[in-house]
Deep mutational scan, measured.
Amino acid sequence: KTVKFDGLQFDFDNPEKALKFALEVAKQKGAEVHIHGDEIKIE
């Protein structure tokens, strides 16, 4: 899975870790997590 935000991109082999990371970043930024297939966007 790939996590994208602020023009940055982070690749994870483990989908659970990717989602956990995305949710943590979103919480800190006050943003929402959007999942599109293998891509997780924080907006």
Rank of each mutant, 00 (worst) to 15 (best):
K1D: 03
K1M: 15
K1T: 15
K1Y: 15
K1L: 14
K1A: 14
K1F: 15
K1N: 09
T2H: 07
T2E: 04
T2A: 04
T2P: 03
T2F: 08
T2L: 07
T2M: 05
T2N: 05
V3R: 00
V3I: 04
V3Y: 01
V3A: 04
V3S: 01
V3P: 03
V3W: 00
V3D: 03
K4P: 00
K4Y: 14
K4L: 13
K4C: 15
K4S: 11
K4W: 14
K4I: 14
K4F: 14
F5A: 03
F5Q: 04
F5M: 05
F5V: 10
F5W: 09
F5E: 01
F5Y: 11
F5I: 08
F5G: 03
D6Q: 08
D6S: 05
D6A: 08
D6T: 00
D6R: 04
D6G: 09
D6K: 04
D6F: 07
D6M: 10
D6L: 07
D6C: 15
G7T: 04
G7R: 03
G7K: 04
G7N: 07
G7I: 04
G7C: 14
G7E: 05
G7P: 03
G7D: 06
G7H: 05
G7F: 05
G7Y: 05
G7Q: 05
G7M: 06
L8E: 06
L8A: 04
L8C: 14
L8R: 06
L8T: 05
L8I: 08
L8P: 00
L8W: 09
L8S: 05
Q9D: 04
Q9L: 09
Q9H: 08
Q9E: 11
Q9F: 09
Q9G: 04
Q9P: 02
Q9W: 09
Q9T: 14
Q9Y: 08
Q9A: 11
F10G: 02
F10H: 04
F10V: 06
F10D: 02
F10M: 05
F10Y: 11
F10L: 06
F10S: 02
F10W: 13
D11E: 13
D11N: 12
D11H: 15
D11S: 12
D11F: 15
D11R: 12
D11M: 12
F12M: 01
F12D: 03
F12C: 09
F12W: 03
F12E: 04
F12P: 02
F12S: 01
D13V: 08
D13A: 08
D13L: 08
D13K: 07
D13I: 08
D13Y: 04
D13M: 08
D13H: 06
D13Q: 08
N14M: 06
N14P: 00
N14A: 07
N14W: 03
N14T: 13
N14I: 06
N14R: 04
N14E: 11
N14Q: 07
P15L: 15
P15W: 15
P15D: 11
P15S: 11
P15Q: 07
P15C: 14
P15E: 13
E16W: 11
E16C: 15
E16H: 09
E16G: 06
E16L: 09
E16S: 08
E16K: 05
E16I: 10
E16Q: 09
E16Y: 09
E16N: 06
K17R: 10
K17L: 14
K17T: 14
K17F: 11
K17S: 14
K17H: 13
K17I: 13
K17M: 14
K17D: 15
K17A: 15
K17Y: 11
K17Q: 14
A18S: 01
A18R: 00
A18Q: 01
A18M: 01
A18E: 04
A18W: 06
A18Y: 01
A18C: 06
A18H: 00
L19Q: 02
L19C: 15
L19R: 00
L19T: 01
L19H: 04
L19P: 01
L19G: 00
L19W: 12
L19N: 02
L19S: 01
K20F: 08
K20R: 09
K20L: 12
K20Q: 13
K20Y: 09
K20W: 10
K20G: 07
K20C: 15
K20S: 10
K20M: 12
F21H: 06
F21P: 04
F21N: 05
F21E: 06
F21M: 02
F21L: 04
F21W: 12
F21K: 00
F21S: 03
F21A: 05
F21Q: 04
F21R: 00
A22C: 07
A22P: 01
A22E: 05
A22I: 03
A22V: 00
A22K: 00
A22H: 00
A22F: 04
A22G: 02
A22M: 02
A22S: 01
L23C: 15
L23V: 08
L23S: 06
L23I: 12
L23G: 03
L23P: 00
L23Q: 10
L23R: 05
L23N: 08
L23E: 10
E24K: 07
E24Y: 10
E24F: 08
E24M: 10
E24T: 05
E24R: 03
E24G: 01
V25A: 05
V25C: 13
V25D: 04
V25R: 00
V25T: 05
V25M: 10
V25N: 01
V25I: 13
V25Y: 09
V25S: 00
A26Q: 00
A26S: 02
A26T: 00
A26I: 01
A26L: 03
A26Y: 02
A26H: 01
A26G: 00
A26V: 01
K27E: 12
K27C: 14
K27G: 10
K27L: 12
K27F: 11
K27D: 07
K27I: 10
K27A: 13
K27W: 09
K27Y: 10
K27R: 11
K27Q: 11
K27V: 10
K27N: 09
Q28L: 13
Q28Y: 10
Q28N: 09
Q28A: 12
Q28D: 10
Q28T: 08
Q28I: 12
Q28W: 13
Q28C: 15
Q28M: 12
Q28G: 07
Q28P: 02
K29E: 10
K29M: 14
K29R: 10
K29H: 14
K29Y: 15
K29F: 15
K29P: 06
K29L: 15
K29S: 12
G30L: 06
G30C: 14
G30W: 06
G30D: 08
G30I: 02
G30A: 06
G30V: 05
G30Q: 08
G30Y: 05
A31N: 04
A31M: 14
A31P: 03
A31C: 14
A31S: 07
A31T: 06
A31H: 09
A31Q: 09
E32Y: 14
E32Q: 14
E32V: 15
E32R: 12
E32A: 13
E32D: 10
E32W: 14
E32P: 05
E32C: 15
E32K: 13
E32G: 08
E32S: 14
V33G: 01
V33F: 05
V33R: 00
V33Q: 03
V33T: 03
V33E: 02
V33N: 00
H34F: 13
H34P: 02
H34C: 14
H34Q: 09
H34A: 09
H34V: 13
H34E: 06
H34M: 10
H34D: 05
H34S: 11
H34N: 07
I35A: 06
I35K: 04
I35N: 02
I35W: 09
I35L: 08
I35Y: 08
I35R: 02
H36E: 12
H36R: 10
H36M: 12
H36C: 15
H36F: 12
H36A: 10
H36I: 13
H36G: 07
H36P: 02
H36Q: 12
H36K: 09
H36S: 11
H36L: 12
G37C: 12
G37Y: 06
G37D: 08
G37M: 07
G37R: 06
G37I: 08
G37S: 05
G37W: 07
G37A: 09
D38L: 09
D38A: 08
D38G: 10
D38F: 08
D38E: 07
D38Q: 08
D38K: 07
D38H: 11
D38R: 05
E39A: 06
E39V: 14
E39Y: 12
E39L: 12
E39K: 04
E39G: 02
E39R: 01
E39P: 01
E39F: 12
E39S: 07
I40N: 01
I40K: 03
I40G: 02
I40W: 01
I40Q: 00
I40V: 03
K41S: 13
K41P: 02
K41E: 11
K41Y: 15
K41W: 15
K41G: 05
K41M: 13
K41I: 15
I42E: 02
I42N: 00
I42M: 03
I42S: 03
I42L: 07
I42W: 03
I42Y: 02
I42F: 04
I42V: 11
I42G: 01
E43K: 10
E43V: 14
E43W: 12
E43L: 13
E43G: 13
E43C: 15
